[in-house]
């Protein structure tokens, strides 16, 4: 196993961890933050797979736009998830 494969496997593990956190956390603001981290690392994975334009699109939509819109939605509704 080359060190190249180690790099990709580490990124994929981190993406899975971030996605599980986004589903698992009850505080919706923390969930949005975890989703932002997961989207960030997905952009890094696109970058590693030699698709820089897809990485730019993912960075613009995932990091900036999605987080801002979700935070605005949480502001209008409520922060804690109901049981």
């Amino acid at each position: 196993m080359t060190i190249w494969a180690v790099l990709q496997i580490l990124i994929l593990i981190l993406i899975v961890v971030g996605s599980v956190l986004a589903v698992w956390l009850k505080d919706l603001l923390a969930s949005v933050i975890a989703l932002g981290g997961s989207s960030l690392l997905l952009s890094l994975e696109f970058y590693l797979l030699q698709a820089p334009d897809v990485a730019i699109a993912e960075a613009g939509v995932g990091a900036a736009l999605t987080t801002a819109i979700f935070v605005l939605a949480i502001r209008k509704t409520q922060r804690k998830e109901e049981e």
Partner: peptide, 13 residues
Amino acid sequence: VYALLSYVGTLFI
């Protein structure tokens, strides 16, 4: 581009 865009989410939070 990423460094220019990434602070927006942190700003909103």
